[in-house]
Computed example of a mutant assay.
Amino acid sequence: MGCEEEVLKIKKKLDKMTSSDGDQTQALDILKTLQGLPINFQVLSKTRIGMTVNALRKASTDEEVIATAKQLIKNWKKFVPDKKDDEKGNKDEGKKKDKEERKDGRSSSSNGSSSSGGGGSSRPTTFPSAAPPTTDSLRLKCREMLANALKLAEMPDGVVDTPESLAEKIEEAIFQEFRNTEAAYKNRLRSRVYNLKDSKNPQLRENVLRGVISPKRLATMSSEEMASNEMKALREKFTREGIDDHQLAVAQGTKTDLLKCGKCGQRDCTYNQMQTRSSDEPMTTFVLCNNCGNRWKFC
């Protein structure tokens, strides 16, 4: 098992320990296991294990666990590149490229396209951007609900970020839209959680985890957009049937005063009959009230 996979496995165990009723009896042993792993900057960036260890430090009351967690975080901070060094390195690299371009007589645009696919260092220079922290208890609870919905089933391949981080970004995008935590904010959150937990629509959750649907996009999607392909097809079918019934009653109907509208009580109606079942069954009658627009059908 690779280092990254081992760290992700450990991270899942620590996530359970940081919950309110989590069992932390093995926390120290797990932290010591982390100390023996060859963790580098790339592993830290992809797994975000640092955030999990810090959360355990805050949740624990064991002095040895807290001290070990602090030491781990301190050691890992050494992997984070200094911003000034990065800027200096980028400037030096840019000057070097300019010299090469002038020497070879190539344009900066063509060189840029070739160098982007070339052999520069693949190590990220910063951690993935995270949502701003919050101390609001309601917002924290909403973030927790979103994270739990994203962790409801097994993680798919190609996950771009942790469920906790994605949940924070989704909640932040919704909060930025409403700028409060009132009814509209709560309704938006509930619909995201409901759809992410829908067992008949696992594709939505997987697309969010894989980055196909960004947190900002999910925060603004309508119920129709979040629905499963099966539900979309069913809604489209109902819409077509409604349109067909309306067109049939209006365009091909026969006026009559023998039928009474159950809504307005008037006898100004238009009806049409159509064979919708097997040939030995009676025809279905579609009726439109010309007075109030009420529609119904009977056999």
Rank of each mutant, 00 (worst) to 15 (best):
Y185P: 14
Q203R: 13
N201I: 00
A183I: 12
Y185E: 14
A184C: 05
P202G: 04
N180I: 05
R192Y: 00
K186I: 11
F175H: 05
Y194W: 07
N180R: 05
Y185R: 15
K197Q: 13
Q203I: 08
E177S: 10
V193H: 00
V193E: 03
I174A: 10
I174P: 02
Y194H: 08
T181L: 14
F175T: 08
E182K: 13
T181D: 12
N180V: 02
K200D: 13
E177G: 06
K197H: 06
A183T: 14
Y194V: 11
A183P: 02
L189H: 09
I174F: 03
N180A: 03
A183D: 12
E177P: 06
N201H: 00
Q176T: 10
K186W: 06
T181F: 09
N187F: 13
A184W: 07
S199Y: 11
N180D: 04
Y185G: 11
K186A: 11
R190M: 11
R179V: 12
L189K: 03
R188I: 06
L189A: 07
K186L: 14
D198A: 07
A183R: 13
R192A: 02
L196K: 00
K200E: 15
R190I: 09
R192K: 08
V193I: 05
N201M: 03
L196G: 02
V193M: 04
F178G: 07
R192Q: 03
V193C: 03
N187H: 10
F175N: 06
Q203H: 06
S199H: 10
